[in-house]
Computed example of a mutant assay.
Amino acid sequence: MTHQPPIRIGVLGTHSTGKTTLLKRIQMELRGHGLTVARTGRLAKRAAAIGLPKMQHHTAASTEWIITQGIADEIAAAAQGAQVILADRAPYDALAYYHAALEYRSEPPPRLERERLWLLASTQAPKYHLLLATVLDTDIPVDQNHDYDPRYRSLVDHHVHALLADDAIPHQRVASDAPSQAHAIERALQLCLQEAAV
Results as ranks from 00 to 15, higher is better:
V198G: 14
P150R: 08
A78L: 04
I75F: 06
L86G: 08
T20C: 05
Q181E: 09
A101F: 03
H129V: 02
A178V: 06
A49F: 01
A82C: 06
A90H: 15
A168I: 05
I169K: 08
H158R: 15
P126I: 13
Y92A: 05
H146C: 08
K54Y: 00
Q172A: 10
I140V: 15
E74W: 12
G13L: 10
A87I: 08
H146Q: 14
A165K: 14
E107W: 04
D139N: 15
Y128M: 07
M55A: 09
G18F: 07
T21W: 08
Q80M: 13
Q124E: 11
A125V: 14
L163D: 00
A175W: 08
Q80I: 00
G51F: 00
A72C: 03
E195H: 11
R173T: 02
L30G: 01
S180C: 04
V198N: 11
E107S: 07
G13A: 07
V84Q: 12
D73E: 15
I75N: 09
Q83R: 09
L164P: 01
R151L: 12
V174I: 08
R89M: 05
D149P: 02
D149Q: 12
L189C: 03
L119N: 15
L95D: 03
Y128C: 06
V160Y: 05
I67L: 12
D157M: 07
T138R: 14
I66K: 09
E115N: 13
K19A: 04
L112Q: 14
G70T: 02
P53L: 01
T2R: 12
T21A: 15
T36C: 08
Q80V: 01
M55H: 13
G81N: 08
I66W: 00
T2W: 11
A196F: 07
H129G: 10
A197H: 13
L155S: 02
I50L: 05
Q56I: 00
M55Y: 11
E195G: 00
